[in-house]
Simulated assay, not measured.
Amino acid sequence: MKKIIALLVLSLTIISCNTSSKKQDLSYAYTGVNWDKYEGHTVEISVLDSTVARVHAVTETVFIKNGAFKIADTLKQIRNAYFGLYTPKGDFVYKQEFILEPGSLEFNLKEGNEKSTISGGKYNDIIYTSFLSNTDYNLKNKTFSDYSKTLTQESFQVDSVRQKYSKLSKIVQDLKKEHYLNIYNNKTDSITSLLAFSKLGYTDEIEQFLDVLEKQFGKGNPEIYLARNTYKMIRKSKTMTKSVGVGSVIKDFSSKNLKGKTFKLSNVLKENKYVGGSEEAFVKLDELLN
């Protein structure tokens, strides 16, 4: 953490906003190939927001036909986004992170792959493609993924199992943070730094560096706005945890997750016995809801 903070402090002096008087073309055309096994399914692009719904579709629903699809539109902001796949009945299948950016992207569901390979796009190459080809990361991520698949709700109650899960998860997360930190400090351009910053995690030490990005992009930038409100949610969660004792009743509420399904807090707590009040547990709960 000290290393991260030191690098972030150093980076404050070299951030530059690469703007141009020429208006940027924000149109995009995304295509999908080799999606034959999901014929008739639909795809949609969504971004996180800070409302109760927590998600916002930025495209019309598009059908997969003859193993392919095309999504074309004009975006308002370059953003961290999610590509969502749904059954013909509208049931969620999976989501995949990517960068919503202008230009052309290809979502290729190569044979044997669980998720598509994304090619094209300056920011997708920097944030995802280069990292996903890293051999060390792929090996460690596979180890974690394979172990996770063996777990059940019952086995996760065993301390040694949870400890191994946490250890393998931390190894993967640390590699990701190192990757995003390098991107943030590389300063290819200010947008790259903004996109990577939101993936560094939410800690008190890092929050202060949002001020620099906010001066460049403004409070109204959706990535800045989302980060600020995420910190507020974390602090609120910590306050609630301190004020609610073990066995106390927490006021129930309903919302939607990234799958578009409505959930109730009471049901989540009922189905997942391990829900703590630390920041790590808050993120874990967020993962469960997503």
Rank of each mutant, 00 (worst) to 15 (best):
R228A: 02
K215N: 10
F263C: 04
D189F: 03
F83S: 01
K256D: 08
S130E: 13
I183D: 04
E60A: 11
N267T: 11
Y94L: 02
A227M: 13
E280Q: 13
N272V: 13
R235V: 00
L48F: 11
I206C: 04
S21G: 12
V212G: 07
T42P: 02
G40Y: 03
L139D: 10
Y28R: 04
V268R: 08
G40T: 04
G90A: 07
K142M: 09
K23A: 07
A57H: 15
S104Q: 15
C17P: 08
F131R: 07
K76Q: 13
I191C: 01
I126Y: 03
Y225D: 15
S278C: 10
I4R: 11
I4F: 12
A81G: 05
T188W: 08
S119N: 15
K232W: 00
S27C: 08
L210V: 05
S133K: 14
K70D: 09
L194E: 01
K164L: 10
S20T: 08
S11N: 15
V172Q: 03
T129C: 08
Q24E: 15
Y82W: 04
G103H: 03
K270N: 14
V43D: 06
I206P: 04
E271C: 00
Y82D: 03
A196R: 01
Q77P: 00
Q208F: 09
S145F: 06
S255C: 10
Q216N: 09
V249C: 13
I224Y: 02
T150P: 05
V161A: 05
E39P: 06
K187Q: 11
T150G: 07
T42A: 05
F282R: 05
L200H: 02
F209G: 01
E205M: 00
Q157C: 07
F253W: 06
N185M: 06
P102K: 05
Y165M: 04
L8T: 01
S119Y: 12
P222G: 04
V47P: 04
V212N: 12
S119T: 15
P222W: 02
E114M: 12
I78R: 04
L285P: 05
L289M: 13
K115M: 10
L85N: 04
E154T: 08
S16F: 12
F253S: 08
N80Q: 14
S145G: 02
L194Y: 01
N182E: 14
V33D: 11
K164E: 09
L269N: 13
V58I: 13
K259Y: 05
E205I: 00
K284R: 14
V33M: 11
K261D: 09
D36N: 12
E279V: 14
A68C: 07
